Simulated scan of single mutants.
Amino acid sequence: MKKFLLSILMGCSLLEAAAQTAFTVNHGPYLQEVTQDGATIVFTTSRKAFSWVELKQHDAPEAEAVKHFNSKDGLKEAWNTFSLVRVEHLKPGTSYDYRIISKEMRSFQPYKVVYGDSIATKWHTFSTIDPQKRGGSFFITSDMHFDAAKLEKLLHAADYRTCDAFFYAGDMTSYIDKFEIPFTSFIDTSVKLFASSVPFEVVRGNHETRGNLARTYSSYFPKKNGKIYGSCLLGDVMVVMLDSGEDKAENHWVYAGLNDYDAYRTEQAEWLKELMNTKEYKKAKYRIVISHFPMVMSQQWKDEKEWVGWEDAIRKFLPVLNKGNVDLLVSGHTHRYFFHEQNVDGNNFPVLEQGESSAVRLELHGGKVQFQVIGVDGKILMEKTISKK
């Protein structure tokens, strides 16, 4: 009898070990840089693999699915766990179905490749950007600092299912020293609720510049131009995303001489000038800016005379933004929700600091800019309608 029970226990242990090491897609898939004619699909596998994406128009038969690979210099990406596949030449305003196919690679020798298990995810659906779409409902939050549970509560409180776009305005983590941190902090929660079908955009905060893996942060959110700052045109809504860098002086002891954000902010200011001269920017009906730092600074922080990096961002970005007919800038960083009317501190547009236990639901409809700041419990903390310029 004891031998029988021991065999049962050993069998259960083996099954548990096998389950723990099963070959799976363990993060994602999540969408990035969805445009009128393309999308990037990002995911990871639990072991090294050769992976690709199958794509077809929504509700088309599986036989019409086309394989898409991440190929570079004539080689398909393989023997990796982090994967991204860009699909292009799509139709604007069109729905597509996709799934991940992955083959475990147990050995990759110069003249012999040994494959293991193969897996296929379920089909997911997304839509390319519709250039004819007017307005939209946006979710914006920041400063979660590893707290994925709080993020999930805020997404539900803001009725995420009825949002068209999602933006994370920085400090979703407190630092990055492990590969898993962006996933456990906010990516996995986003995938659980929406991100396999609707993309999210990330604006880097000053805390995401910290840690020995901070230099890998942009790789989780790949862009064709390789930058983490940028813009997207969602129908008639132009969203500008600025990377404001660190908040203290470059020579502050905590940075150990490793930062170069003053030059980086100068680079962005020049890019911003160019963006504002584009046809896409000029024709947009709504212009929203997202930056981790507010582009105004309350007197209490000015008096501290420590926030040299934040002041540098204001000095370089604000004069350009003031010429851009901006409707609203949404920021984080200060861990409070606070609204700055235009022209209170050299700003020609209103600025919203959205808080660290809240989220913004932004409504752009009928020529009106309206927002609610919503708490974790669903309570509306602030509500305003802004007159467009």
Rank of each mutant, 00 (worst) to 15 (best):
E356L: 10
T24Y: 01
V308H: 11
T125N: 02
E353G: 01
R204A: 10
Q32D: 05
H335T: 07
Y286D: 07
E180H: 08
I187L: 09
D260M: 01
F200D: 13
Q57K: 15
I290Q: 05
K91F: 07
G378N: 04
S127N: 13
S196K: 03
S231R: 08
Q36V: 09
F179T: 02
H145W: 01
N322H: 05
S102L: 03
Y220P: 04
F349P: 08
G38H: 03
G74T: 06
D243K: 02
V237W: 10
F339P: 03
S127W: 02
T45N: 11
M382F: 11
V66P: 04
Y261H: 15
I187S: 03
D262C: 02
H252F: 12
F4T: 08
D312F: 12
L362A: 00
E306M: 15
W301H: 15
A313K: 08
G170A: 10
S197L: 00
L275I: 06
R161V: 05
M241Q: 14
D147S: 11
E246Q: 14
L75A: 14
K285A: 08
T21L: 11
T121Q: 03
M297A: 11
E208V: 03
Y160G: 09
M241T: 13
V369M: 10
G324C: 06
L151I: 02
T45V: 01
S196E: 01
M241K: 15
K72V: 06
L328R: 13
L84H: 15
R265G: 04
V254C: 09
R106Y: 00
H340D: 12
E54A: 11
